[in-house]
């Protein structure tokens, strides 16, 4: 089976029913997307398929019909994505386990909404659980990323 992940073609030998998450993690060695719940209830496994966020723990790899982007694919060369930069600047993560998923959801939100309000952030990010309670910083970092993005004209 052939997938395109972070612009790289990869060949894996997977049962088409295997969730994309496990194909990425156990077969392709791409560990950024995390296993949290297995039922699309926590968001830790969020990746983008053709730019749209999906919970990879619940999407069969055989049903993937686009290019997959994981957190490893966000930076351009040595430059972190603006969302990653904002996450660093605001010192968002604690344990960090949910943050790859949070960042992917935030990237997807900012693709659609240039200047998200608090309500936009609530409506986009409530599927991503954080047990450390970094929510106030996530909120601040998304706004920071939106500013950075506008500044860079990206």
């Amino acid at each position: 089976m052939r997938l395109t992940v972070n612009n790289q073609p990869i060949e894996i030998d997977a049962d088409p029913d295997m969730p994309l998450l496990w194909a990425l993690r156990d077969l392709a060695g791409i560990k950024g997307p995390k296993f949290g719940c297995g039922i699309a209830a926590c968001g830790a496994c969020t990746v983008l398929v053709d730019g749209a966020p999906v919970r990879s723990c619940s999407l069969p790899v055989g049903a993937v019909d686009g290019d997959v982007t994981t957190i490893e694919g966000l930076p351009e060369g040595n430059t972190l994505h603006v969302v990653q930069q904002a996450w660093l600047e605001m010192q968002v993560p604690q344990c960090g386990y949910c943050q790859a998923g949070q960042i992917m959801s935030a990237v997807a939100l900012l693709e659609e909404v240039d200047e998200p309000s608090d309500a936009d952030i609530d409506d986009a990010m409530s599927g991503n659980l954080c047990r450390c309670g970094t929510y106030p910083k996530i909120r601040a970092a998304i706004k920071q990323a939106a500013e950075l993005k506008t500044k860079l004209g990206a």
Binding site: T46, A52, P53, R55, L109, E112, D120, D123, A124, M125
Partner: peptide
């Protein structure tokens, strides 16, 4: 909503 369409899950 943006970032959280039904099709995310």
């Amino acid at each position: 909503n943006p970032g959280q369409r039904c099709a995310v899950c």
